[in-house]
Amino acid sequence: MWKSIIFKEWLKVRWYLIGATLLLGVFVSYIFINVKHDITFQDANNLWYLILFKKYQFFGLIKYLPLLVGIGIAAAQYVPEIVSKRVKLSFHLPVNENKMLLMMLGFGNLSLLICFSIVFSIFISLSNCFFAYEIVNEAIITIIPWLLGGIAAYSLVGLIVMEPIWMYKIFYLVVTSMFIPLYYERGITGAYKPVNLTLAIITLLISVSLLFSAYRFRKGEM
């Protein structure tokens, strides 16, 4: 049974997930093509100087991509479920409803984590080739909230999609559109250092938010 549910989730998101990973990969590659170009044309020491003292973010290009990926995977996974209320079919399976929803959530979050981990590992490896670890560390601190923002957006978009009442959908959208920017504030490189752990905990907590609107959906809240 569980295998079939996982397979169903995989069928829904597979092309999107592969596409998103490739897209992120292309952007990360482009970042380092840019770095190579800058080093060739203005010398590595000048680029290092800009990064260290002018807080130039050589990786800034990917800022909102994790957010788009998170929203996209949530849409790919949950929109088909509410079309003609298909998710109600799943609720009729002899499986605990919440367990099944948690399985869906777990699958989505894991997909995102795998996608982000692959791209993030490539980013760190390539950064280590060009820059000292002090620069790479600051870059990691800066990118982490962007990735967390993608995961939080996945959870909250799932919540919005599954909410049965349009008025509440709009309310949730308003809260989401005020909350998600907290991950993308315009700070200098490394500014998120004291708050990254708190953001990670909040992101982990809201990963179960879908259960609330799914409950309202299956109880036929109108």
């Binding site: 909040i202 907590l205 809201i206 179960v208 938010s209 879908l210 259960l211 609330f212 409950y215």
Partner: peptide
Amino acid sequence: MEKISRYILVLVA
């Protein structure tokens, strides 16, 4: 579980 998820959402709001 739904109640916990609600309180988490209330906290976020």
